[in-house]
Write a protein that binds this DNA or RNA. Structure first.
Lengths: 379, 379
DNA sequence: ATTAGCACTCAACCCACGTGAGTGCTAAAG
DNA sequence: CTTTAGCACTCACGTGGGTTGAGTGCTAAT
């Protein structure tokens, strides 16, 4: 950051104030609210320079100033101090996410809900992706002649299944044979690597006529692939309408329209790279600030912040989007995010998102280990 | 309906016009657009009477008139003619709902999407309720020591399952014994009737120590109960913001806030009674109109229309809500609904909702029979 | 480098006014 | 008894002008 200390203070004050009030902030109110020991005129000069440097902008000549994307960026990267969540708040969230939790799906939906509620912004959660997980087992259970349940067990401890139709003549024993042949052939492979060809090859080890095998094999293949389905959960979209910047209904409409496109959002979220974020932090160094940043990194958070134009989705460019990843075991699984106005309370959101992420990670491990509600309660 | 023919015509014209323009409609524009062979003054007199009778109201003295809830009610019950969907439109929807459809969940989500898209309003779909379905099978599949998959098969051809923890010492054979004991004891019962006690009684038929049984039995019970979980799918909520009556952001906010309360909405929808609707139709008779109504009834639709204050949920009282039920086999399963401004295009929505309902019914039967995508394609 | 002073800008607000669509009423015509 | 022409009245809405005040940039003095 090439800004002297006072410029930094001023920038921070402007952003803080604007986040609080949503009104352009002027030199005078700045001196009075934050006790700078200089006159408004001095502040004015500094602000004019900050504007020249691109950190601030003026909605119109005779108004105060508001942060630009670049201003927010500097604020988030260098000026913001993220506090830990107060213990009471943390406990509430943890308890909420522990209570009554049987499934990963349920867990991440609740994570979305609690995040939105606590931050008062809109939350987005992406379901786990299992591409890189290994196939552990595949079972087929005869439900009735002609109908079977395919059960796919993944290394992450996740079980997916699907009802399929099979040739009526197949009996339970034959079905099991096929399933175990496929399992033998494929177990240990990652979902990504399994193709129709590999499944077919595995199935062919069964001493049954190919005509019978084909359909079953194909269904097995589909079932495996389907285990990787991406889902997106959205919560609290109405909260955006309470923000002054969305009083314009057209903006609100566009925002909601974009968020309602599940696939678009899911695609965008799943392709976010953590590395992007780390790179964008760097530019110059400022000793004491850098320290904060390092602390952030080592602390594991690794959240990403996208501000305004940095978000590449139409309709969200008046927003900021904070995301992080949760894990299953030690591989990245899905993502959690909060989207709000650019003028969002970054500190609050980041500390919440970090805490929710950690709690989700913990809970997933618990689920994978098969601890059930009853045990939880006795804990 | 105690209105003479001309009053009916006028009421219908007012509602039609207001639906189209969202502007209060006055006597003059009424005569010019719809060719009544009388002067505006006559229309004015009639309108004044319609207002006295409660069918119309005036936003302010010097404005035209808009329909009241009662006016809409009369319109929907007596004046509206519902057309069949054009074949081209019908085909599109049918194909969309057929394509790529493996699961009931997926089906009803797509139903919500297509309904919202085609009507340009917001759609709501309630997942099937299985309370009244019978338990057909319950299987337990050993995944690894201490972990099993419980598979619950319902009469409707629906399969639900759930991963549970079991005592580590149990082996696959014992597990199967327990499952088949429970199955023997409970199969044929409706989900409603199954309680912890009945499950326990059934499980106790197994020649295993009770300490081992307890946990498994409890998990089985939970799995059965969980099969009945209610889900709600919402689509196109942003579309409401395009409506002039929701230009006021506060209204839009309240609307969205209410819709975001899944449980509230799910509860409300699941408790709607068809009978309510039929009863509300009756009052007086008017020969030729009654005919239309009977036709509606016999034609199977049985949709429900809730208008304005008739909707008992806060925040939706500027809306109208049209719902219908879809079936699994021959028992009511879940509900499909469209919510829009009171000023909604009732005819369009009703014909769409009816068609979607029928298509969903057909598809569910198809799914239950286990026809898969491949066969569909060959059809 | 800082600051007091000053002229300038411009969104926001208020108010007054005219406009016009729409009404209700009355009295005449059918 | 119904319909209609005529007319006075109402009131939301749009327009334009005037004022206000927060905020600015610049200059000159500290």
């Amino acid at each position: 950051m090439g800004l002297n200390n006072r410029k930094n203070q001023i920038l921070k004050a402007v952003v803080d104030d604007y986040i609080g009030t949503a009104e352009p902030v002027g030199s005078k109110s700045l001196v009075s609210k934050y006790n700078f020991n200089v006159s408004p005129a001095t502040i004015r000069n500094e602000m004019a320079e900050l504007e020249e440097l691109g950190y601030l902008e003026q909605p119109h000549t005779s108004a105060g100033r508001i942060p630009s994307d670049k201003g927010y960026r500097a604020y988030v990267d260098h000026l913001l101090q993220v506090d830990e969540l107060p213990r009471a708040e943390a406990d509430k969230i943890r308890n909420y996410l522990r209570d009554n939790m049987d499934e990963v799906t349920q867990l991440i939906r609740k994570a979305a809900t609690v995040l939105s509620e606590k931050t008062d912004y809109t939350s987005l959660v992406l379901s786990p992706q299992y591409k890189r997980s290994h196939l552990k087992q595949i079972k087929m259970l005869m439900i009735e002649p002609g109908k079977a349940l395919v059960v796919v067990v993944l290394s992450a401890g996740v079980v997916k299944d699907r009802l399929v139709r099979i040739p009526e003549i197949l009996d339970a024993v034959q079905l099991m044979q096929i399933a175990s042949a496929i399992e033998d052939g494929l177990s240990g492979m990652t979902l990504d690597d399994i193709t129709l060809v590999t499944v077919a090859a595995a199935a062919r080890q069964t001493p049954l006529p190919e005509s019978l095998l084909n359909q079953v094999m194909y269904e097995a293949y589909l079932s495996i692939k389907q285990a990787d389905h991406l889902d997106i959960y959205l919560d609290g979209s109405h909260r955006m309408l309470a923000q002054p910047e969305f009083q314009d209904v057209r903006k609100a409409h566009d925002f909601l329209e974009t968020l309602n496109r599940d696939k678009l959002i899911a695609g965008y979220m799943s392709e976010l790279k953590e590395s992007d974020d780390l790179s964008s932090i760097e530019e110059e160094k400022d000793e004491n600030k850098d320290e904060t940043k390092l602390q952030k990194k080592s602390n594991d958070p690794a959240y990403m912040v996208r501000i305004g134009q940095e978000i590449l989705l139409d309709g969200l460019q008046d927003c900021s989007f904070i995301t992080t990843s949760y894990k299953i075991g030690d591989t990245v699984a899905g993502r959690i995010g909060v989207i709000g106005p650019r003028r969002m309370e970054y500190g609050k959101v980041i500390s919440h998102i970090n805490f929710v992420k950690m709690t989700v990670n913990d809970q997933i491990i618990r689920l994978a280990n098969g601890e059930t509600r009853m045990e939880e309660q006795n804990k």
